[in-house]
Simulated assay, not measured.
Amino acid sequence: MDQTRYRKVFITGALGFMGRALSAQYRALGAETCGLDVRADASANVVAGDVSRPEEWQENLAGCDLVIHTAAIVTNNVSREEAWRVNVLGTRRVLDAAIKAGVKRFVHVSSLAAMRFILEDQADESAPVMPTGNPYVDTKIASEQVVLAAHSAGEMTCTIIRPADIYGPNSRPWTLIPVQMIQKGLFLLPAHGQGVFRAIYIDDLVNGVMLAAEKDEGIGQIFILGGEVATTCEKFFGHYYRMMGKGSPRMLSTSTAVAIAEVGRMIFKLLGKPTELGRGAMEMLSKKNTVSNKKAHDLLGWYPQVDLEEGMRRTEVWLREQKIIV
């Protein structure tokens, strides 16, 4: 993209992986950016606050004509109550604040996790989603309903994005955490490594989000944004192993991987330490179905430009520059 229709953009989760990338791109196009996160950063025009308590930060929406809501709890190991407070109630509160401030457009970043338990191959945005008791999955589904309800009621012009597996410099779930777990010898793959991984490089994701926000064709729509070519978990995470000279991933049956991961989760819980080990992660990495980008192609003209080899090359450069790997 080489231009934007927006003068001032407000981003929740503005200091996160996606929030920073979106802010940088909008500033490069001449828009003013501001935002909200759990901590403040005056240099980035970001205030501290809680998405479920807009009275703390409502005034910072003044003059904004676009809100991009990326803030969320992104983990499978979270209580249902906390996931609902942030991911569902928080979404409604951000919507309320945007409506009160007279914002013109609202883009909600959901997740392909909302479709995690769909068995259909090449599933698209019309596929019915299924809550299953996983707090992250269920609250992502519920947050979408909040946004669709606001749009259908005429409260706000909305768009929903379902990103796939976003990797690249600063990606916590699909770059930093896997690398750290591999370094500690804690990484394992279910489904003998043959689960489908729908990798999308951060630059491609940012471009898709911005096209959905800028184009009238994105109004009232849900868009899947994933890598154009699905790969296996063995191939994707194998890149990190090769970067570190670690051989290849430990690949097990799904039932064995779930059992080991659950034991690991309980140990970390007893120690009072956070972890992504557990059943939820193993279910995610054992998925075999693919999804379709066709709607984003047809309505937005969006196509990923960075393939896995190039994306991993860029990611390795960054990991070495940051001395995360040597």
Rank of each mutant, 00 (worst) to 15 (best):
D2I: 09
Q3A: 13
Y6K: 01
F10Y: 11
L15M: 03
R20G: 15
S23W: 08
A24W: 06
Y26R: 00
R27P: 03
L29V: 06
A31R: 01
T33A: 05
L36S: 03
V38T: 07
D50L: 08
D50S: 05
E55F: 07
E56M: 14
E56N: 07
A62Q: 14
G63R: 01
C64N: 05
H69A: 08
H69M: 09
I73G: 00
T75A: 09
N76S: 08
N77H: 04
G90K: 00
T91Q: 06
F106T: 06
H108K: 02
S111K: 01
S111R: 02
E120S: 11
D121H: 08
T132I: 13
G133N: 08
G133H: 07
I141Y: 03
A142L: 14
A153M: 09
T159W: 06
I161N: 02
I166V: 15
P173E: 05
M181A: 10
G185F: 12
L186P: 01
L186V: 00
G193K: 00
V196Q: 00
R198M: 12
A199I: 09
I200H: 01
Y201L: 10
D203C: 04
V206P: 07
N207D: 15
G208Y: 10
M210H: 03
L211C: 06
A213W: 10
E214C: 12
K215A: 14
G220R: 04
Q221G: 04
F223E: 10
F223S: 03
L225F: 12
C233V: 10
C233D: 13
F237L: 06
G238F: 13
H239Y: 15
R242D: 15
R250A: 14
S253K: 03
V258C: 06
M266K: 03
L277M: 15
A281G: 14
S292N: 14
A296K: 01
H297M: 13
L299Q: 08
L299D: 07
Q305L: 15
L308A: 02
R320I: 12
E321S: 10
E321M: 11
V326N: 09
